[in-house]
């Protein structure tokens, strides 16, 4: 058995209503998938906050490094042509 007496950690993602995005809610400790799911249910839906839950082992998540933020995210800043407002529409055109 591991020296940690509190079981592994799992990240909890919740969907608040059908069709909505899953949003990170927090984490729980659990030994296995079922336990993680049940613990997430008992911890994060006490007030009917969710319609669906994902649990993911914490160490299965890879996060971007803040030091790389400039190379990761800045290059997207000048690509204005990806946004609809970039384009000039002829006057009078409808439903576009």
């Amino acid at each position: 058995m591991a020296t940690d007496s509190q079981l592994a950690t799992w990240e909890v993602f919740m969907q608040s209503k059908p069709g909505a995005n899953y949003i990170h809610a927090g984490s729980v400790h659990a030994a296995d998938k079922q336990m993680a799911l049940q613990n997430a249910r008992d911890t994060y839906t006490r007030r009917g906050e969710g319609t669906s839950i994902w649990v993911v082992p914490t160490d299965a998540i890879t996060a971007s490094n803040p030091d790389d933020n400039d190379m990761f995210f800045d290059p997207a800043n000048d690509k204005v042509y990806r946004h609809p407002t970039f384009y000039v529409m002829p006057e009078g055109a409808k439903a576009i």
């Binding site: 591991a2 007496s5 509190q6 079981l7 030994a31 296995d32 336990m35």
Partner: peptide
Amino acid sequence: AWVRAAADAYRLKK
């Protein structure tokens, strides 16, 4: 402690 150990042992077995 024995409960947490059992849960861990069960996971390993599975």
